[in-house]
């Protein structure tokens, strides 16, 4: 049963799990692997042995930034981000979404709706408040501000109605709402 579901998800991701020969080049270069409980290689390993549950319950699928470094370097061209993407949908459908991930998503979307693009300062502030960790990452604030990675005020939004339509379409896609 679980195996069948796993195979469906892999097929949807367009990845054959047996292409992976566990060399670890993906995890060696992954910028998030140090905080993941299952490395990208581990995701493929679990897919090979049919352990869907372990993937769905891992923090990996929520921590992956989708940078595609792993897929780019993979000698067998295994698209791990595509697998993780499918796993996110599956986990969400099963209600396995972590609260902080959910909060981040909501804050992010609200941000987009308001300003047409993400405003980092607001995102960080709201996220920290809602996850009850108000001082998280405060230490990097001066550095980011100095290097113009953060702006105090958002830019004036443009074409908000079109953006709202886009967000609605994205939400409808694959029945998220």
């Amino acid at each position: 049963m679980e195996n069948e579901r796993l195979n469906q998800l892999m097929e949807r991701a367009g990845v054959r799990q047996y292409d992976c020969y566990q060399c670890g080049k993906c995890s060696g270069g992954c910028p998030m692997a140090h905080v993941m409980d299952l490395k990208p290689r581990g995701v493929m390993r679990c897919a090979q042995i049919g352990s869907l549950r372990r993937i769905l319950e891992s923090n990996t699928i929520w921590l992956c930034t989708g940078c595609h470094t792993c897929a780019e370097r993979c000698p067998h061209d295994v698209d791990i981000p595509a697998v993780i993407e499918e796993m996110r949908y599956e986990a969400a459908a099963e209600g396995l979404t972590r609260r902080d991930s959910k909060v981040l998503n909501e804050v992010f979307l609200a941000n987009i709706r308001m300003f047409g693009k993400n405003h980092e300062m607001l995102l960080a502030g709201l996220y920290n408040m809602l996850t009850l960790k108000p001082l998280q990452d405060m230490a990097s604030l001066p550095h980011m501000y100095k290097n113009k990675l953060l702006k105090l005020l958002p830019k004036e939004p443009k074409n908000l109605t079109e953006i709202e339509a886009l967000v609605k379409r994205a939400e409808k896609w694959r029945g998220l709402k």
Partner: peptide, 11 residues
Amino acid sequence: NGEDTLLGKQV
């Protein structure tokens, strides 16, 4: 940069 796949840790 690599992974020690037997430990599951980045090295």
